[in-house]
Design a protein around this nucleic acid. Structure first.
Length: 438
DNA sequence: TCTGGGGTCCTAGGACCC
DNA sequence: TCTGGGGTCCTAGGACCC
């Protein structure tokens, strides 16, 4: 048996811990540039605000309904997540952290009343860190996700599911008729693994509910929808196809991508932006202890606007796998120069580091030994510099120290101190910043 | 006017090899 | 005229998740 423990409206709940006055009020947390709603309180959901809805469509509710709007604070959410995961791990012998706000727990070997035990863990999480959670229990991951959905809706929308399933829902403890009734009451698009596209296709084939999908012929589903959907069907039938992964391998790619908040049509700010993205991505890379073999760069126009569309990407191989910020910036800049074309209003760009492998720069460098005169090697200097920058940026905030990129690729390299950390880095006018020599 | 960011997995098709 | 079959690797694109 598996449990899925999921923090309710996680980012909003984190904010409420430190601002209790937000309790009971409609609250949303917005993405980068205050573009989209990425978390909503129950009160905000009740107003109709959807996940990832562009905020300009709902801005009027700030006045009309007193919606409280917050910019995301991911450092805070990450910290709360760590505490949340530690407490949730107490539910069973193994844990898979699935996202910032949810984890699967293996309940194999856990004796006693699983529902009572789950309520205890819920209460502990709420008392100790202030985050409300729901827990779904079932024999497979897909069913545990569904049980969690039931636990949430039974609490949030009275009447949608039996009230006794609110907060903790153990599907495995129900008899077949009761379980089928739950699946019958669940739209197929609420099933984990069924998105908008496949959901529409399923409905066109008269598969409307989770029960319809559970009773579908797995082979026929595979032929029409592929192996992923076939697994979903089997999981709904109670056959576990997706195992618990309590030691996931390191990520296969690392990305930093951003919308600009305004359009960019010329090369210099694009080059600056991808330099910044490469810097952020390199930090993540070093944190994870990996080296990248290739760098992908992309930029595109807004798909939401009329007018000429443009989107391009390119992959730059590196001479050797590296985690060195300077090398990654150079590759990103070269890529952007190669794909850039004048005449388009670009709204987003990004850098992705590919072909990751374990290791750190100095392990991979041949010239790590000190020079004969006792001075240190360039590779070791760079490695130490990267580590020092990571420490400063961790302590004083992202982008406090970064590699200057405006003076041409590496020609007059300087280290600049950010003038104003409240401004998103990609809209800061870097040429206005004071220069501090390292 | 204003539309997130960071991931995963699967599939199809082309190039290449023997 | 008639043009194999099987394998690998790579890439692009689609679909999904939170």
């Amino acid at each position: 048996m598996l449990a899925l423990v999921d923090g309710n409206n996680f980012y909003v709940s984190c904010e409420r811990v430190f601002r209790p006055s937000l309790e009971g009020r409609p609250v949303v947390v917005l993405s980068n540039n205050d573009g989209c709603a990425i978390a909503r309180s129950n009160e905000a959901k009740a107003l109709g605000i959807g996940m990832a809805d562009p905020w300009f469509q709902w801005r009027h509710l700030e006045e009309e309904a007193g919606v409280v709007v917050l910019s995301a604070n991911f450092v805070l959410y990450g910290d709360m997540s760590d505490r949340f995961m530690t407490l949730a791990a107490g539910l069973g012998p193994a844990q898979e952290i699935y996202s910032i706000d949810e984890c699967f727990i293996d309940l194999a070997g856990v004796r006693g009343d699983l529902v009572a035990r789950s309520h205890k863990v819920r209460d502990r999480i709420h008392r100790w860190i202030g985050i409300p959670t729901c827990i779904g229990i079932a024999p497979t991951k897909t069913l545990a996700k569904l049980a969690n959905h039931v636990a949430k809706d039974a609490e949030r929308k009275p009447g949608s599911y039996p009230a006794e399933l609110a907060r903790v829902c153990h599907l495995g403890a129900l008899d077949a008729a009761a379980r089928d009734a739950i699946l019958q009451a669940t739209p197929v698009t609420d099933v984990w693994g069924v998105g908008r596209r496949q959901g529409a296709k399923l409905r066109a084939g008269q598969v409307h509910t989770a029960l319809d999908l559970a009773r579908a012929n797995a082979a026929a589903i595979r032929a029409q929808f592929g192996v992923v959907m076939e697994r979903t069907v089997r999981e709904l039938q109670g056959t576990s196809c997706i195992s618990l992964d309590d030691a996931p391998p390191p990520q296969q790619q690392v990305a930093c991508t951003r919308s600009f908040g305004h359009t960019i049509a010329t090369l210099p700010p694009l080059v600056e932006a991808v330099s910044e993205f490469a810097t952020r991505a390199a930090e993540k890379l070093r944190r994870q202890g990996s080296l990248a073999g290739r760098v992908m760069v992309f930029a595109h126009t807004s798909p939401h606007r009329h007018g000429p569309q443009w989107a391009r990407s390119t992959v730059q191989p590196l001479r050797r796998p590296t985690d060195d910020t300077t090398a990654l910036i150079h590759a990103a800049q070269a890529g952007m120069r190669a794909i850039y074309e004048a005449g388009y209003d670009l709204v987003k760009a990004g850098v992705m580091l590919l072909d990751l492998q374990p290791g750190t720069q100095h392990q991979n460098e041949l010239d790590l030994e000190p020079e004969e005169d006792g001075s240190s090697s360039p590779a070791r200097d760079r490695s130490a510099l990267m580590a020092a920058m990571d420490k400063v940026n961790e302590k004083y905030g992202k982008g406090t120290l970064h590699s200057g990129s405006t003076g041409g690729a590496g020609k007059n390299r300087v280290w600049t101190m950010r003038a104003d950390r409240r401004t998103p880095c990609y809209t800061t006018r870097w040429e206005d910043m004071p220069v501090v020599r390292a």
